[in-house]
Design a protein around this nucleic acid. Structure first.
Lengths: 133, 133
DNA sequence: TTTTGTTCTTGACACCGTCTAAATTTAAAA
DNA sequence: TTTTAAATTTAGACGGTGTCAAGAACAAAA
């Protein structure tokens, strides 16, 4: 089972109603929510959850590798529950962020970059989504 | 001549002491300054320049294509005076952003992305700079 | 029960970027 | 030159994001 309780226990994070609410939303999300998004949705399940707890929990999950923070929007970090490597496409009109599978793109030339030790990389594309899903 | 005065006139922006101070710093910068960086340095030449004027001027320059705003750091936009296409490498330890020449990397597979109309793209790499310049 | 340690909440805080109203500067017209 | 209008700058207020500290609530153990 991959419910929030199991996930938290497996990571050695003590489960609490607040953390369960956060995990349930953010790890099932197919979008790229901001902390504020997570707060709003978590409060539907756990009305008293505070901003600080949401940030603490999200940062805990990030430290455990269950999600990744991405700097893709101005003024705010977004949280990405897709832990596998992938690229991102950002719609100029809507600002919506789409995941692009790792296998869709190939980047050549990294190995020739002297003086740079590359730990990770991604392609960020911008433009328009032509077809709605 | 490529001094600030000439640049501003060529773009149809009325030169003022404040704008000249901003342009002189940001367009000659080889780093990726934040608005706050630009404000600090501009005040050395023009001590009364205000935050709002710096933002106004930077946004004007961006609208004219003389620089580009980049979302590469958490919590703040950086301004990039390098108007040509290029990629970015961000040092894990220092946060310093380095330009990677466009010709150094090649991205293949974009043309196969159905449903996405790509207007621009770049590779963002993270890791360590191994050699100081 | 009391103790101990963890977690949560509240509210304060600093920072970024935008906005507004007022003041200043500039340019143009009389 | 004086007047008028337009453009620009300024200071400060504002809303949003994220962090922090202090105390309250909670759970586990003795």
């Amino acid at each position: 089972m991959n419910d929030a309780l199991t996930i938290l226990r497996r990571c050695g994070i003590k489960p609490t109603p607040q953390r369960i609410a956060v995990v349930n939303y953010v790890l099932k999300s197919t979008t790229h929510p901001t902390a504020e998004d997570v707060l709003d949705h978590s409060r539907k399940k756990c009305p008293t959850v505070s901003r600080a707890t949401v940030y603490n929990t999200l940062n805990l999950l990030a430290a455990k590798g269950l999600l990744k923070t991405q700097v893709l929007k101005e003024g705010t970090v977004v949280f990405d529950p897709n832990a596998r490597q992938h690229h991102h496409f950002i719609d100029d009109d809507t600002g919506v962020i789409y995941d692009i599978p790792w296998s869709s793109l190939a980047v050549s030339g990294k190995e020739k970059l002297r003086d740079y030790e590359v730990r990770e990389y991604q392609v960020i594309l911008r433009g328009r989504r032509t077809k709605r899903k």
